[in-house]
Design a protein around this nucleic acid. Structure first.
Length: 538
DNA sequence: CCCCCCCC
């Protein structure tokens, strides 16, 4: 392990906002010490930010010391610094902790910055040093690192002496030592450095992560064309807030199901990573993890707590694009009504499942029906029924959006519901409800669509339209009416070739709007309150 | 390798 001697480091008290330039040789310093154990092992490193750009929810840039450059990626939690304008392109940042993403057979190194501070906002130009240096020490193989001597560059520390590390113990080492009876494999894993989740990749398997179980799925069995088996998923979150989904199959699924507990913290090693299928992604990570029988999972004791749930609330009037999709949504709203519990018989196996419908409203001035299932229907639903008169606010995580009644939502196995959550949104909603919502007759988000579609084509979004209960499916032919809803991109609909008209829900013939209300159907010779929307071509 | 999640 490569470390700077104490006197080569800049004392923390001199690390201020006063640095006006980069640390000469900074890139070489980083690459010579690719995985510092803690911020104490990181010398003064100030780099200039070049080519700052977003990649997904994160930002990358080229970290420049005026001479050499290295690709850098900022942990997700620095995104706000960029958005706020504090961290700017051409600005200076002091790197306080980092880890290098070491992909074998790849020459381009990447520094993952886990801690940094802004030293200066954008300078006028890119800093370019006149000094030429030779190959950075970085290109050496790990075994050769032990005796690196860095070159004196400008005003940089004269010599970078390296010493074996024995002075700083990582938390995992301490835990490891306290647990002398751990399995040898586990103990070995523990003595290694804890990697930030963001640094993991499919090409390098030698890591240990320290993560909290922030979602635990059921141990399910499945049967399909490829065979049958058992499967079990967890969502893991590290201290940077990076998340990954881990999957176990068959024996490992059974083995680890009782090991992983919601809210507990674990050291994990010897898992494998693969590119996550975008279609089924439940967390923000390009990769997903598989744990097989060789995986090492060790609880970090004394660190258990139920983490604050991270919500991504969708306003009720914005549920449309999620209809029929796989993406689950979170909703926060005021409970307006709670139905009795019903027993629903599942078609596939005749099993009875308790269900309860509740109606919630939010400050988009819309309501939506939420179907609660199982425990959420019985226990939680009963609690809601008891307090419905006080208009409780609920936060529901992981809801499936369907087109029933135009738009409605339903809990799934992993859904959670919190009554009167301590969130800023709760206060906002309460204020809205008291001042406005309570005294207003709010419409269901699905009203005017679905069975009660009387309004024709509704354009809710700039790039798409919501069509509900179209009575002709172009795949089935005009004469075979079906009922379905969809969101279609406007670009897929050719306005000049498309005729929209209102059709009778009974005979599917064109109807005319009746005087007063409803629709007159010539075919039925009857007045209807509802009609459907039909299109003659796609 | 799952990715289903119930009923109208």
């Amino acid at each position: 392990r490569n470390l700077l001697p104490e006197d080569a480091r800049t004392p923390p008290e001199t690390r201020g906002m006063d640095a006006k330039s980069v640390t000469p040789g900074a890139v070489a310093l980083i690459l010579a010490n690719p995985t510092p154990e803690s911020p104490d092992d990181v010398p003064e490193i100030v780099v200039q930010v070049l080519d700052l750009k977003p990649i997904g929810s994160r930002f990358t840039f080229m970290a420049s010391d005026g001479e050499a450059k290295v690709k850098a990626i900022l942990s997700t939690h620095f995104a706000s610094e960029v958005h706020s304008g504090k961290l700017q392109n051409l600005g200076l940042v002091r790197i306080l902790n980092y880890t290098c993403n070491d992909i074998p057979q790849k020459t381009d190194k990447m520094v993952i910055i886990t801690k940094c501070e802004v030293v200066s906002q954008a300078l006028d130009a890119e800093i370019k040093s006149e000094v030429k240096i030779e190959e950075p020490a970085a290109l050496m193989k790990p075994k050769e690192e032990a005796a690196v001597l860095s070159k004196p560059i400008g005003g940089a520390p004269a010599a970078i002496m390296l010493k074996p590390r024995h002075d700083v113990k990582s938390a995992s080492q301490i835990v490891s030592e306290q647990r002398g009876n751990a399995a040898p494999a586990a103990r070995l894993a523990m003595t290694r450095r804890v990697h930030p989740l963001i640094s993991l990749n499919p090409y390098q398997g030698n890591w240990v992560i320290k993560v909290r179980v922030t979602s635990k799925g059921n141990l399910r069995s499945y049967r399909n064309a490829r065979g049958e088996g058992h499967v079990f998923n967890v969502e893991l979150t590290d201290e940077d807030g990076t998340q990954i989904q881990a999957t176990m199959f068959n024996e490992p699924a059974k083995k680890f199901y009782p090991v992983f507990e919601l809210g507990k913290v674990y050291y994990i090693s010897k898992g494998s990573l693969r590119i996550a299928n975008k279609q089924f992604k439940t967390v923000q990570n390009d990769y997903e993890m598989t744990l097989n029988e060789n995986a090492v999972v060790e609880e970090a004791e004394g660190e258990s707590f139920i983490p604050p749930v991270q919500y991504n609330f969708v306003k009720i009037d914005m549920l449309g694009p999620y209809v029929g999709g796989r993406e689950l949504v979170d909703i926060i709203g005021v409970v307006q009504s709670v139905s009795p519990t019903l027993s629903i018989r599942r078609k596939i196996d005749n099993e009875s499942i308790p269900k309860r419908d509740i109606v919630v409203a939010d400050d988009s001035n819309k309501t939506v029906t939420i179907s609660l299932w199982n425990d959420l229907a019985t226990t939680v639903g009963e609690e809601l029924l008891d307090m419905v008169d006080s208009a409780p606010i609920i936060a529901v995580k992981s809801l499936k959006v369907s087109d029933f009644q135009g738009v409605s939502v339903s809990t799934v196995g992993k859904s959670t519901l919190v009554i009167n959550p301590e969130l800023p949104e709760t206060e906002k909603l309460r204020a809205w409800y008291e001042s406005e919502g309570k005294g207003t007759a709010l419409a269901s988000v699905g009203a005017g669509m679905g069975a009660s579609n009387a309004g024709g084509l509704r354009s809710m979004y700039s790039d798409r339209v919501f069509l509900s209960h179209i009575t002709s499916d172009p795949n089935l032919g005009q004469d075979k009416p079906v009922f379905f809803s969809l969101y279609a991109n406007i670009s897929n609909i050719k306005p000049d070739q498309t005729m929209w008209y209102r059709a009778c829900t009974t005979c599917n013939k064109k109807v005319t709007e009746a005087l007063g209300s409803g629709f007159w159907c010539e075919g039925c010779q009857k007045n209807y309150e509802q009609c459907s929307l039909r299109c003659t071509s796609w």
